[in-house]
Design a protein around this nucleic acid. Structure first.
Length: 492
RNA sequence: CGGGGUUUAGCGCAGUUGGUAGCGCGCUACGUUCGGGACGUAGAGGUCGGGCGUUCGAGUCGCCUAACCCCGACCA
């Protein structure tokens, strides 16, 4: 396999660089099933860290976990017109429930006798089966709100797949809430968008733009889709999480009503929101360099790796004795430490290996250090090494991890700032979009104009940002009035 | 579904006018090494994606087929 170093992030080989990084860092590999991936233990450990933090945040905002079926009757999907139109083209369908031996020779065939009366869809998302269930759960305003989240896998038969960013099967969480009033549901959708932004920025160290999607980009069946958009190192945008205000669409489709305080039936107001293993892709493409993965300390399965440098068992014993108290101290601080004393790999190999895996801090300790009472510390984000006294190293590492977390965020934020520009004419837009990055421009608010821009430049409106310049202007294409600038970019 | 490409050892690849299957990495054993992906020696490992054909003979030529990758359209 070619070395990662042969590829550079912002080149045309970005895809190849990304794929190779995923494989070399031992995160995932292509599975035998089309468009699916195997998430390997190290990659899954990162996902588990993400899950853990997100789940805590969901519970802090009053949500509970539940689980709904994988298979959805076909008729459910067609109950909401926009929803079925959005997903129909990418559904895997279960048609039979039995195999039998092939009468014409070896192997098995689908038993034609075992055809299902109604086909089942492998969930591409769970709104329909959940709202079919909520119908039974909701009678009175006293049953509301329902604040439920599910951790699950879903399947979308995408034309083209890419590891973590768009696999046929992916892991995610989907929150589905039911409320008595429009205001409450809208608040919920915004609240969860803020949870996602908080998680992206403070744990993943990925700065995001919060905003609302244009009608073209809206979730199938939603009245409003809120989004967090991140910028990758090649200047393309990645939709990293979405929160939808569903209005009463699903309540009407599944006839979910409640008796309000005036004893009048009303349709329930809904939201749904989700983030997926795509976040792993965002994490990789935001921070990594040509030496491999770079992980923010708060999500790194191993925060500190210690590599002893020794020639024989006596050397190792002396090093272990010196470092044991440090390991204890670090663990007491809640820092995850790996002491890699394996004698079947050389130190240089270990250095390179943990670098590819993105371990934030590495300590190296050999005979020379024992004599001097020192240890060598390397930061993965800057690749800088310094030799420090072993006394007080645990406190130093604690601060260093915090610093890495912050500087990763700041670096990514600076990158985004450097690649975000404002343009006022369509000519300039067409020219600048080739450089990648975000372009802040005025738009007349019509789907037709957005469609034209997309066809001509491959750029889409990533969102109408909440924060930012609210100065009105005129659409760069049609010259019609525009309330504010919106974010344009090419996207994954 | 359009356009391009690939398929030969676990991985990455070479294979000339058709003539008994190769290289690098990795793997196994032993030895020397061990402060940035060590080196030497000796090994193991492939019905060349599948099928049909041409031929005395096919990895190589022809036809069919499948899978995968990349670029589009679709999408979290």
């Amino acid at each position: 396999m070619a070395e990662l170093k042969n590829f550079t992030k912002r080149s045309d080989n970005y895809s190849q660089w990304y794929n190779e990084l995923v494989i070399k860092a031992d995160l995932a590999e292509q599975s035998a099933v089309r468009g699916c991936m195997v998430i390997k233990p190290y990659g899954y450990a990162i996902w588990e860290k993400m899950q853990h933090e997100l789940d805590r945040m969901f519970k802090e905002t009053g949500h509970q976990n539940a689980y709904f079926p994988l298979l959805i009757p076909k008729s459910f999907l067609s109950r909401e017109a926009d929803h079925v139109e959005g997903f129909a083209k990418e559904c895997a369908v279960v048609t039979h429930h039995r195999l039998k031996n092939d009468p014409n020779g070896g192997g098995v065939i689908v038993d034609p006798e075992a055809r299902l009366e109604e086909e089942l869809i492998i969930r591409p998302t769970s709104e329909t089966i959940i709202w079919n269930t909520y119908k039974n759960w909701i009678n009175s305003y006293r049953d509301l709100p329902i604040l439920v989240n599910q951790w699950a896998n879903v399947m979308r038969w995408e034309m083209r797949t890419r590891m973590f960013l768009r696999t046929a099967e992916f892991l995610w969480q989907e929150g589905h809430t039911a409320h008595a009033t429009r205001e409450e549901a809208e608040e919920e959708a915004i609240r969860m968008l803020n949870v996602y932004a908080d998680f992206a920025e403070n744990f993943m160290a990925v700065p995001v733009v919060k905003g609302v999607k244009s009608p073209n980009e809206r979730f199938a069946g939603a009245l409003d889709t809120y989004t967090i958009e991140a910028m990758m190192q090649d200047g393309k945008a990645l939709q990293s999480g979405t929160s939808h205000f569903l209005g009463q669409n699903f309540a009407k489709a599944f006839d979910v009503t409640f008796m309000n305080k005036n004893n009048k039936p009303e349709y329930v107001w809904a939201t749904s929101w989700g983030v997926s293993t795509r976040l792993m892709g965002a994490l990789i493409m935001t921070h990594s360099d040509d030496n491999g993965l770079v992980l923010p300390p708060r999500l790194a399965p191993i925060q500190v790796v210690i590599v002893p440098i020794f020639k024989n068992e006596d050397d190792l014993a002396a090093i272990s004795e010196k470092i044991e108290p440090v390991i204890k101290e670090l663990r007491n601080k809640g820092i995850s430490v790996k002491f890699d004393s394996a004698d079947n790999k050389r130190p240089g190999f270990k250095f390179a290996d943990y670098e590819v895996k993105g371990v934030p801090v590495r300590l190296a300790l050999g005979k020379r250090d024992l004599e001097n009472g020192t240890v060598e510390l390397m930061r993965r984000d800057t690749l800088t090494k310094e030799t420090l006294p072993i006394d007080g190293i645990a406190e130093h590492i604690e601060k260093e991890l915090e610093d890495i977390q912050n500087s990763l965020f700041n670096r990514a934020l600076q990158y985004r700032k450097d690649h975000t520009i404002s343009v006022d004419t369509y000519e300039e837009f067409k020219e600048k979009i080739e450089d990648g990055g975000f372009i802040m421009a005025h738009w007349d608010g019509t789907p037709e104009t957005e469609e034209k821009i997309k066809e001509e430049t491959k750029a889409t409106i990533r969102c109408i940002p909440f924060d930012g310049d609210k100065t009105p202007g005129v659409c760069m294409v049609t010259g019609k009035p525009s309330a504010q600038r919106v974010v344009f970019a090419r996207a994954y």
